[in-house]
Each structure stands twice: as C-alpha cells, then as structure tokens.
Write a protein that binds this DNA or RNA. Structure first.
Lengths: 195, 195
DNA sequence: GTCTATATGTTGATAGAC
DNA sequence: GTCTATCAACATATAGAC
C-alpha cells in the first residue's frame, strides 16, 4: 500500500508520463494542453487540477524529471563500463543513442526561449548539472595527465554532448552507415583527433 | 538604373531582410507575420502581396538565402586562410562565431518540424549542401593520408558544426573564458583528440 | 478528478478598397 | 504596395457543477 503524498497521485503521474513523451518529442510550443489531454482521454482543462499554474509548470516538472533519468542512466552506464575511460565514453554514448532523442539543441535554443526567464534558468541549471557532471567524472580521469585540458573538462564534456546530438542531426542521405558505426567515427575523432 | 524583375522589388527585399533577422534569431514558430509587419512599419496582411503563399513561403526564401550567405562566407574565409588545413578550420570557426548565431539545432529539430514535409526536405538539402561542402573540401586535405577517416569526411564535417554550435550552448556559468578561447579548446580536441 | 461553459487573446489567411 | 475589415481556428486559462 502506498499513501500518495503531496503532488504524487496516480492520475498526476499519468499526466506527467504522457506529457514527458509529448514534450520531449515535439518541444514546448508544439505540444498543446489539448494534445496532452487527448492522449490521456480527458479534457485539457482537467490538467489544471494537477498543475494549477498551467503549461509551464507541467513542462518544468516533466523536464526536470527527464534530466534525472538521464543523470541516473548515464551514471549507471558509466559505472557498469568499468575503469577504462574509453569504455566509459563508449558506454555513455551508446546509452544516449539508445534513448529517445534528447533534442538538446531544440531545448536550449527554442524551448528555453518560450518559457519564463526564471523557469528557463532553473531548467538550464538542472540540464547542465545532470549531463555534464557524470561525464566530467570520466573526463577528469581521461585528462589526468594533461593539465591544460583538465581544467577545461566541463567544456570538453559539453563537446561530447554536441557530438552525440549531432549524430541524430546528420541526414541519412549524406552519411552512410548505422548510428552505431557513426558513434565509432565520432568517438574516434573525439579521442584521437583527425590524424 | 535597375529594372526589378520577377520577385526582386525593393519592398520585397526589405521584407526579406527583416524576416531573415527575425526568423534566424527566434525561429519559425516564435515569429509571427505581425512581428515582421510591425518591424517593417506595415500591416501583416501586406506581406501576402510579396509572398502569396504566406509564412512558410517567406521562411523558405529567407532561409535559403541565409544559407547562401553561409556558403559564400565560409568559402571566402577558407580560401583566404591559405593552404594549411589547420588555418582553414580556424578561419571557418572564427567566421562562424562572428556571425549571428546559426541556431542549427533549433532549425533542424524545431523549425523543420513546423513546416510542410516538402519545404523541410528542400531546406535540409540546401542547409547541408551549404555547410558541409565547403568544409568537406578542407577535410579531404586534412584526412588525405587516413583513408578510413577520409571516406567519412562528410560525417566529420558535421561534427565540426556540432562543435561550433555547441560553443553557443554552453552556459557562461559553467565555462570560463571568451568564445575565442573556447574555439581554441574545441579545435584542439577536434584536431588532436583528448591526449 | 473530471466535466461543461466560457472568457480572452493570438494566429495565419482572404477579399476588396485605395 | 499597402490598407481596412473580417474570418475561422486554436491557444491558455478560469469558474463552478458533479
């Protein structure tokens, strides 16, 4: 038996699950409250019972949870990969590509502009903490004997995500091969450079 | 004297200039025809005189032209940089960062989903041709003695843009230093890898 | 927790005068 | 080329019944 406490009724959890799927796939502006209600089989006005402040409140909650999933998944994948940082990068990359597309570019460049400045700031903090920190731990090992790059490890962690994200953006008409093959190419350049 | 031909009256050019600025900064959905009209000092309905098919037609025209500017600018920057491919990559990166933000992630992940499939396909072709091909010429030189990577040069060109784009996405609170310093870090890793 | 009814605003688009 | 007038569609949101 589970006594639901504040803000975690079952109906509310269903709302969050559906909203997460829709928001993460199509973005903040493209998903309407009617879309979410329809996917749940209820009227969109009923959503205000669970999220009195409306669409933005729902989006913030959903996105913060999504980032928690990323953080946990990344940490688990990295820890399971062992002690070789190359294996860790590999595991993180493959885990990310196994998830539904993150759409980091859209989130940072579109969604964050369409919500209030306060909500955007809060979410950006969560997004970067969730993604950068797990990878930073790996990179601190990888860059241990390179003090110059070591102090830029967060920047380099950001590069990692830009590269993984970019794999989904490249059109199949321009690049041949599966995503897994592309991961090999991308990580090869990331680790070894162009030569 | 200049006899304006089909589709290049002065008023039409003014519309395109304003729409380009607004669309490239805020994206397709966030910019309304009223916004564009207001910036021009005219009513939004007057825009239909120049673009009878409405917002999408205007966006396609504007985006296609923007990509032409990128292609020309990149080719000029690369050619001016000389024969060392490292200098060429540097010049291309600095030229891109000197431009207004490209918002490639938003374009590919949000804007392209909000227009018709035909328009999206046409624009994607133009985008990738304009960006990938100038850089591919540089990379074919850089990778000349590495046949494995050479056949992946278009993928690697895509990586270059993901990395440059990512510089604008990293929040100042997480990374210290100017954009120019970040370019150095990013290109160092791109060229030499992590070690 | 969900409903109906409704308020209120915004959007892209068309028709036709000047 | 630009205007006015107008439209249908859709958005978020509120109030109150069940």
């Amino acid at each position: 038996m589970h006594h639901p406490e504040q803000g975690e009724s079952e109906a509310r959890e269903r709302v969050i699950a559906v909203a997460r799927q829709l928001f993460s796939e199509h973005g903040y502006q493209a998903v309407t409250l009617r879309d979410i209600g329809q996917a749940l089989g209820i009227r969109h006005t009923s959503l205000y019972h669970h999220f009195p402040q409306g669409k933005e409140e729902l989006f913030v909650e959903v996105t913060a949870r999504r980032m928690g999933v990323y953080r946990q998944g990344l940490e688990a994948a990295i820890q399971q990969a062992g002690s070789d940082w190359r294996d860790c990068l590999h595991a993180a990359a493959l885990w990310l590509l196994d998830q539904p597309a993150m759409h980091l570019g859209r989130m940072l460049q579109a969604d964050m502009s369409q919500i209030s400045a306060e909500a955007a700031m809060k979410l950006k903090e969560i997004i970067f903490a969730s993604l950068l920190q797990p990878l930073n731990a790996v990179l601190r090992v990888a860059l241990a004997d390179n003090p110059e790059k070591l102090q830029r490890s967060l920047t380099i962690a950001g590069m990692f995500y830009s590269l993984i994200e970019g794999i989904d953006n490249l059109p199949a008409s321009y690049v041949k091969g599966t995503k897994q093959e592309l991961v090999e190419v991308v990580l090869d350049v990331f680790i070894n450079g162009l030569k």
